[in-house]
Design a protein around this nucleic acid. Sequence first.
DNA 1: GACTCGAGTCCCGCC
DNA 2: GACTCGAGTC
Length: 673
Amino acid sequence: MKLNAAQQEAVDTLAGPLLVLAGAGTGKTRVVTHRIARLIQSGIRPNRILAVTFTNKAADEMLHRASAMLKKRRRERPEISTFHSLCVRILRRGISHLGYPAQFAICDRGDQESIARAALREIKAPNSALRPGELLYRISRWKTVCVSPTQAAATAATDKEHLASAAFRRYQAALRAAGAVDFDDLLLLTDELFRRFPDVHQDEADRFDHLLVDEYQDTNAVQYRIVKALAGGHRNLCVVGDDDQSIYGWRGAEVRHILRFKRDWPEAKIVRLETNYRSTREILDWANRLIAFNHLRHDKALHAAARGEPPRVLQLQTETDEAEAVVADIAARIATEKRRPRDFAILCRTNEQPRAFEAELRRAEVPYVLLGGMSFFDRKEVRDVLAYLKLLANPRDEVSLLRVVNTPPRGLGPALVRRLLEAAVREGKPLWELLPVADRHVALTPAARTGIGRLRELLGSLAHRARTEPPARLARELIAEVGYYDELVRQYPNPEEQQARWASVEEVVNAIGAYERRAKKPLLAGFLRDVALSGTDEDRQKESKLKRDAVVLMTLHAAKGLEFPEVYMVGMEEGLLPHHRAAGEGGAGIEEERRLCYVGVTRAQRRLTLSLALTRLKWGKPRPTHPSRFLYELAGQADNPAYAVAMRGGEPKATKSRRPGKTSRGKRGRETG
DNA sequence: GACTCGAGTCCCGCC
DNA sequence: GACTCGAGTC
């Protein structure tokens, strides 16, 4: 298929700043890949092109498509990576300027939580005053706008902010002490490196002549600065995005970067892609109507060619009924309309919603894949094993040490560990260095003394080998020496659970094996960094399992960038979409939820079904729900009195009449247009 | 120090 | 309903 005029223009504008405003389904990916190919055809060397995306999924996809277009085998390739991998590459060379070890570790979400918890304990914050999750959220917000702990403390107004800023200081100190960085630091430190060391900056900026940024509406303040720093010289910057699909405000993304592109790059050309090749006109009508309720946006509307049937709304009694109805619907279509399971996606707002659908899909024997959610790396046993491995790579990693120091039990209970930690703080030494002389600081029981001795001996000898030997064998030895299998048996009486958990442990070893086969010089540290950034091959294969013939179950956030012939958006209720937490953030929060809804609707190619349950289990009890305000906006029923009720979050509860499409209360619900 | 039990809370989305 | 936390017991 030929490119349309707007797409062609975006592909052909090779020099200077370019903003491609690409609505949903307008062929953005095609434009990006054609553009990369065109640059190379025009004589630009591939390795002078840098393309940055936000997710591994997007990077993999772009790389795949670009190499398919460049049929001739070439030695050189464009660099296509996520912001985070790009920063890791830059930091690996320059981070020592900032006082971090060149072999810095990257903390994942679990590590962050442990550090946050420890920081809160250190400042003796009452437990209820500030939870680790909220602290991390605040820290991340500060970091994305480059606020230091000192600045945070200076501007803190409420008690909570004071607590949080104090904990932020500890948190950052703990990271630094362990020679580790979190995800926000990757970006922040790169920015700092560029600012403080102009030669490092220049060196990096000189590597490329063309920079392409995908999903530009999702850039946060730091990413924005990195982009500017990299493209400021050659000014060949192409950014692609859609302000209506900005759904990452909660992690610092600022729509205004895309809205103000022309101000930053005055000579910029703007190309709008508004012809939608994905969805039917009926689906787009709903999408356009919905998004028009937002104020902060480039005014635009998508045009479609194809005709289809109007979207449907299914209303069920409970969330179990909802799952049953949706799965029955899918199963029927597969059976009678010759659809493939892979044609269907079920999109949810939260990670908890898929449970009911999983159970139902299994029962109906419909193949499915669950994307996102509880990752392999969130499992306790996986975290334990990884903590041991991290400790091998970096004995200063206190988070990991604390995690495994008494797993399996070695007579080092919480009280003893606390005293050891206090001693370490007094001495200004990492805990690891204190262990050999622990006796001098605290009274150890004989069991604790042997425990410490064995742990040190084991880790000490393996850590030495970890610097030169391939890691899979080391990991196997470590797990055996620690007696982790026995520990699983001890902890979980149920043999099935033991086996399941042991399988996860073996999975970690397999992942290391896969890494060994892939890496040029496989070392433990390299494996750990890979894992922190992008998960294992298993994880990535799960992405490619999108191609497997299975119904896809995932969150709306995870669905961005994908498309499916048939989409089911479930849980269309006030409190869920829009989420009740968003309502507290004022108008901007609701507008982001509306964009999220828009993203969901525009994933559908041929058929869209929205569903809701009249009651939903919350905190163990079924509670009445109210239809999402977005249903009324989508269906053009904003004059419905029930809409005003929805806008107030469903109050008063007594108003149970007039739901969109006025359905009967039949268990199977009823289709409406 | 390890385990059990009851009270209290309610972590949205992710690289 | 699921989970964490703290108090109480062996």
